[in-house]
Simulated scan of single mutants.
Amino acid sequence: MLMEDDYCIPCILKMSAEIIRGVTKDEEQAHEFMGEIIEMKNLGRDKAKVTPSEIVRDIWVRMQEFCAVEDPLKDRRTEQNRKALNIYPFVKELLHESTDPILEALKFAIAGNSIDAMLDAKSGIDRKMISFLSGINPKAVEEFKKRLEKAGKIVYFTDNCGEIVFDRLLIETMRAEYDCRITVITRTVPVLNDATLEDALSVGLGEVASVMENGIKEPLPGTILSKVSPEVLAAVNEADLVISKGGANYETLTEEDGITGKTTYLFQAKCYPYCKAHNVPLGALIVYNN
């Protein structure tokens, strides 16, 4: 999914301003940084063939250089994981009582996608997240279940911190319902509030699946298969099912022809381009079997 100037650029600029103001309290410095960002070539109207994730990568690198801070949102990621773990037992009990645990686990895993620095650099999570649990396509869910029935090997691309706690719940539920082996993929290089290997292990994902870094040596908030490690590429090629979490993975992996037909995208409709592409209202929970 390539960038739509009228919608993606304002969102990216808003995210950049919020993060830089969280890093520095110097308003003049923040204005200087935003001036540099606005002048970036890819934010111009040259219609370059580029995804929003690649734009965010370039902005993140500039932010690291400008502030001399390697990981501006490290503390925020830790806090998001902590808050999500606090309600993990509560959600697990809800799933235990459910007559359709896969459906309920899907809802929580996708609703967890609302924990996103692109929406709010200070975003967190509490029980209010349950209000997001609506607007999911039952036919898409049934197709996903059919894919799970046939999938011996699954590759699961994670997205944000906090959200990965609910990924763990979905993975636990899938393993309880189906005979499958799951490999979880995280970022190698920190970017935004995306989960790293350290984050994934800290919330217990290593207890329910194999976990590995994507091997991408740049702060890309998405997945480009030509950049991943040979181990990750082999896992993707051997997988019966690829599960992709979040908007950035959706934007980048839908550009990959090799995984069409075996990929399910789980994300929230957080912006107009997503709503338009899938004919859903803002905030809807999307299960897209591609």
Rank of each mutant, 00 (worst) to 15 (best):
L95F: 07
Y88K: 05
L85K: 02
A68K: 14
N86I: 14
E65Y: 12
C67L: 13
F90N: 10
I87W: 03
F66I: 06
K83V: 11
F66R: 00
Q80S: 06
Y88F: 13
S98F: 04
L94H: 08
E70I: 07
R77C: 03
Q80Y: 08
T78D: 10
D75C: 09
R82N: 01
N86C: 15
T99Q: 15
D71Q: 01
D100N: 08
L73D: 08
E93P: 03
F66D: 04
E97D: 14
R76Y: 11
N81H: 08
R82L: 05
D75Y: 10
V91P: 00
K92P: 08
E97V: 15
D75V: 12
L94Q: 09
K83L: 10
L85I: 10
E65N: 12
T78E: 11
Q80N: 09
V69I: 05
I87V: 07
F66G: 07
S98E: 00
R82C: 00
Y88T: 12
K83G: 09
P72G: 00
A68R: 14
T78Y: 11
R77N: 07
K83D: 06
A84E: 03
Q80L: 04
E70R: 03
A84N: 06
Y88A: 11
E65S: 09
F90T: 15
N81I: 05
K92H: 10
T99H: 14
F66W: 04
